[in-house]
Deep mutational scan, measured.
Amino acid sequence: MTEYKLVVVGAGGVGKSALTIQLIQNHFVDEYDPTIEDSYRKQVVIDGETCLLDILDTAGQEEYSAMRDQYMRTGEGFLCVFAINNTKSFEDIHHYREQIKRVKDSEDVPMVLVGNKCDLPSRTVDTKQAQDLARSYGIPFIETSAKTRQGVDDAFYTLVREIRKHKEKMSKDGKKKKKKSKTKCVIM
């Protein structure tokens, strides 16, 4: 069974824990209790493949930012979460993405942009803004509501699919490099 290491990042209060708990335990946590770091595991079937999701729910508070490099190193894919009623959390996505790329030393890291709290009427981040940002990053965008469960499975499952595509691409690139290195030079 394939294991996928997913990391949920975003500013404090955007609903990272609520999304994760909704996926794992099928219930909505409405009281806000700032996370330092929590880890969850769940076995699911995605596109006919049974897999184990190892999900790291991270601290959004700035005082825990020193811990970010460590979990970013171990993560295979990242859910970059903002709240649709919090423009600052949307603007912060850029910083999370840049930090992930720096730590992973790669421009090509599996990510999904997630606009959470889409059940709320007080939207300050337009869907088109988020779609445009995701398009500019070359990553999928999904709106979710941890409260109603809308888009929750889709967000995590899409990230797994992005990781699969990335692994497939990397193995193809690896095979191309191996083929090239088999060419021999004969000096007579």
Rank of each mutant, 00 (worst) to 15 (best):
T2E: 15
T2I: 10
T2S: 14
E3N: 14
E3Y: 11
Y4G: 14
K5T: 07
K5C: 06
K5N: 11
V7W: 10
V7L: 05
V8D: 01
V8A: 06
V8E: 02
V9H: 04
G10M: 02
A11M: 13
G12L: 07
G13P: 14
V14D: 09
V14R: 05
V14Y: 06
V14I: 13
V14S: 12
G15L: 00
K16T: 04
K16M: 05
K16R: 04
K16L: 01
S17Y: 00
A18M: 12
T20R: 02
I21V: 10
I21F: 07
Q22W: 08
Q22V: 05
Q22Y: 04
L23R: 14
L23C: 13
I24V: 08
Q25R: 07
F28D: 01
F28S: 03
E31P: 04
E31Y: 07
E31A: 07
D33W: 04
P34L: 02
T35V: 01
T35Q: 00
T35E: 00
I36Y: 04
D38Q: 01
D38R: 03
S39L: 05
Y40P: 01
Y40K: 00
K42F: 11
Q43N: 12
Q43M: 08
V44K: 13
V44H: 11
V45Y: 09
V45M: 10
I46P: 09
D47G: 11
D47S: 10
G48T: 10
E49C: 09
E49K: 10
E49M: 09
T50L: 09
T50F: 08
T50P: 14
C51Y: 14
C51I: 15
C51T: 12
L52E: 15
L52A: 15
L53A: 12
D54E: 15
D54F: 06
D54W: 06
I55A: 08
L56Y: 07
L56R: 14
D57T: 01
D57C: 00
T58L: 03
T58I: 03
G60W: 02
G60Q: 03
G60R: 02
Q61H: 12
E62C: 07
E62W: 05
Y64D: 04
Y64Q: 05
